Amino acid sequence: MELRSYLDSTYLKTNQQANLSEEENLVKARFFIEEAIKEQFKLIMIRPDRVTLAKKMILEANSNLLIGTVIGFHEGRLAIADKLIEAHQAIANGVDDLDFVVNYEAFKRGEVELVKDEVLQGTQLGLSKHKVVKWIIEVAALTDTQIKELTTLIKEIVLQNFEESHYASVFVKSSTGFYVTENNKPNGATVSSVKIMLENAFPLPVKAAGGVRNFEEAKEMIQLGVQRIGTSGAKSIVDGATSNSGY
C-alpha cells in the first residue's frame, strides 16, 4: 500500500511547546518541510506563520507538495470573524488547505447556531478560493453521541449549501493533537471515533489526525475509509517503524 498520498506531515508546535528557541524551532519547521518535499507526502501541515516559508521552499524545489495550516488553533474559541481573518491571510500567503478548529465547546453548550454559522462562513470562504476545508471536531473532547451529532451537523450544512462537486473538498477531521486528556486517554483519532465520523460524514471525506503511529495503524485507517492521515511521524510510518511522536 502506498501511504504517501494519504499523509499530511504535521509540525504545529510553538517555541514554548517544543521547548526550543525561535531559531531552533524554525530549523525544525524547515526540516519537516524539506522532509515532506523529499518524501513526496501529500501535504505539509504547519502553523500560519510558516506558510510563506513553506511556499518558498516548495517553489524552489519545484515540488507538488501541498500546504495546509490551522485556523482558530487549537481550542477553536475564536469568533468566526477572527477565524476568517486568519484564513484570508493564509490564503494570501499561498496555503492550499484550511483546517478550522470548530468551536466544539460552544457546540457542547448547545450553541448550535453559532457553530452552524462558522461552518457555513468558513466553508464558503475556502471553497470560493478553491481551497480544501477541514473541520476539526476534537473527538477526545466529545462523547460518542456528540461526535455523531457534530459530524452530522457539518455534513448537513455542506449538503444544504454547496454543490455536490464541492463535497470532496470539505473534510471532517478528528483532532488537533493538542487536547489534554485525563488518565492518559488518547487525544487523537481512534478506530471507534473514526468509525462514527465515517458513518455520519458521508459523502464528505474524513481525516484521521493524531494517534496513527505506524504502518499497520495507517493501513487500518485507510481500510476503514479515511482519505487523509495527519501525523508528525510520517517518515517513520512509511519506513515501517513506529513513531514516538505525540501526534
Rank of each mutant, 00 (worst) to 15 (best):
221 M>F: 12
73 F>T: 01
228 R>E: 06
22 E>D: 12
60 E>Y: 07
6 Y>L: 10
66 L>Q: 15
138 E>Y: 04
245 S>I: 13
23 E>K: 11
190 T>K: 05
59 L>T: 12
241 A>F: 12
69 T>S: 01
232 S>L: 06
166 H>W: 06
94 G>H: 06
45 M>A: 14
66 L>G: 06
162 F>M: 01
16 Q>T: 13
165 S>T: 10
200 N>T: 08
93 N>D: 15
190 T>W: 06
163 E>V: 02
234 A>E: 10
96 D>M: 05
70 V>L: 03
19 N>S: 14
92 A>M: 09
243 S>C: 10
97 D>F: 06
87 A>H: 03
146 Q>W: 00
92 A>Y: 07
190 T>I: 07
109 R>N: 11
17 Q>G: 12
171 F>C: 04
158 V>I: 12
50 R>N: 11
222 I>Q: 10
212 V>G: 05
74 H>S: 14
210 G>P: 02
56 K>G: 08
64 N>R: 14
179 Y>L: 08
122 G>Q: 05
33 I>V: 15
108 K>Y: 05
163 E>M: 05
201 A>C: 04
230 G>E: 04
11 Y>K: 01
58 I>E: 00
179 Y>V: 14
202 F>C: 05
176 T>C: 01
242 T>H: 02
18 A>G: 10
50 R>S: 09
210 G>S: 07
131 K>N: 04
95 V>F: 02
62 N>A: 13
228 R>N: 08
81 A>V: 13
169 S>R: 04
47 R>I: 01
77 R>L: 11
183 N>A: 12
134 K>A: 02
64 N>G: 13
130 H>R: 10
81 A>K: 15
134 K>R: 10
165 S>V: 08
230 G>S: 05
179 Y>F: 14
159 L>C: 02
177 G>L: 03
134 K>E: 02
98 L>P: 03
12 L>H: 03
98 L>V: 06
207 K>V: 02
48 P>K: 03
155 K>S: 02
94 G>Q: 05
62 N>Q: 15
81 A>D: 15
70 V>S: 00
202 F>Q: 09
63 S>P: 06
178 F>A: 07
217 E>H: 11
244 N>D: 14
184 N>H: 10
155 K>A: 02
205 P>A: 07
